[in-house]
Simulated assay, not measured.
Amino acid sequence: MAREDRFPAWEAALLAGVAAVFAAGLVGVYISMPHSDYSFLKLPRNLQDLKVLTDHLEDYTSDYTVQVLVGYCAVYIFMQTFMIPGTIFMSLLAGALFGQLGGLALVVFAATAGASSCYFLSKLVGKPLVFSLWPDKLMFFQKQVAKRREKLLNYMLFLRVTPTLPNTFINFASPIVDVPYHIFFLATAIGLIPAAYVTVRLPFSEPQAGIALSDLRSLNDLYDPQSIALLFLIGIVSVTPTLLSKNETQAKASDVAASTN
């Protein structure tokens, strides 16, 4: 794969245009919300911000559920599309506001939509940026995708479930290394479920079920060794068909070679 470090002016203009469209949509969501004191509305950058936001939104969500859902999805998809850090806090917020099942469904939907948006944006203008930010990871990813083309869905599921490669990188690099969208979509929608469940598994309104939001001191409280081990176990199970297929191919090749000698 030849390096492409240049970022043409038309691609920069297109990227800015897409960002402007998203920004206009967010402003529209904000304006459409019922009048109130919105000084608390800001992207949570730490657990303290998240707690403040949750405290203000809990009562608001029960009265204006649709507005909160639309606003939440718009913000999450915007962050995913433009690789803005902090979606982990948005996932925690979903669990805090909508509980386990509702939060899980919301996070998986928003994350899949945001990842898809990032995929198509990268397909249009992402190649120079990917080469600039992750040249080594990109070469590694391309080689792995080429080797596992026949069982690509299993490999992509493995990447989504485990922290082997950052999700941000996967979203942006997949179209560059020719991962078909249907494979990307299925791996994202299915593969994000375990990690999303780890994040929103606690119904924060019921502290007896586990760690309440007010008890969290750092994100490490969420990703304990057992949770990480479980994610890797799921990832290994997902990639097992690929490994078995590879062994079967090698065995057949050995049998053919033996029979010709």
Rank of each mutant, 00 (worst) to 15 (best):
A16S: 09
L244M: 13
S205E: 09
P135Y: 02
S36K: 08
Q144F: 06
I176N: 09
S122C: 06
L165K: 09
L97A: 10
R3I: 08
R45Y: 08
A96P: 08
V75C: 14
A19E: 02
L41M: 11
G86C: 14
I193W: 02
E4P: 00
F140I: 14
A19Y: 07
V125H: 03
V107G: 10
L53N: 01
S227E: 09
I176F: 11
N247Y: 13
V52N: 09
L152Q: 01
N167Y: 14
M156I: 05
P34D: 04
K151D: 12
L50A: 02
S227T: 03
A212T: 00
L50G: 04
Q144V: 13
A111I: 05
L41A: 10
S36R: 13
F184C: 08
L152R: 07
Y119C: 02
Q250Y: 07
V68P: 04
D178G: 08
L186S: 05
T168Y: 12
L244D: 04
V198I: 09
P163S: 12
F109R: 05
Q67F: 13
G102I: 12
A251C: 09
L213K: 00
H56C: 11
A19T: 07
V70F: 06
K246D: 15
V107T: 15
P8L: 00
L165F: 15
A24C: 04
I31A: 09
L202M: 12
L233K: 03
A23H: 03
K252D: 14
G210I: 00
L222N: 00
V75P: 04
M139H: 06
A189T: 06
G71Q: 07
T249D: 13
Q226V: 12
S116G: 09
P163C: 10
S32C: 05
N154Y: 14
A189I: 13
K147T: 04
Q144A: 11
L192R: 04
L41V: 09
A229I: 05
Y64M: 03
Q144S: 07
F185C: 06
M1S: 10
D59M: 08
L152H: 07
T81I: 12
A115D: 06
M90K: 13
Y38D: 02
P194F: 04
M139Q: 10
F7L: 05
L165N: 10
L159W: 10
V237R: 01
Q67Y: 14
H56W: 10
I170E: 13
I183T: 14
M33A: 07
T249A: 14
Q142V: 00
L216W: 01
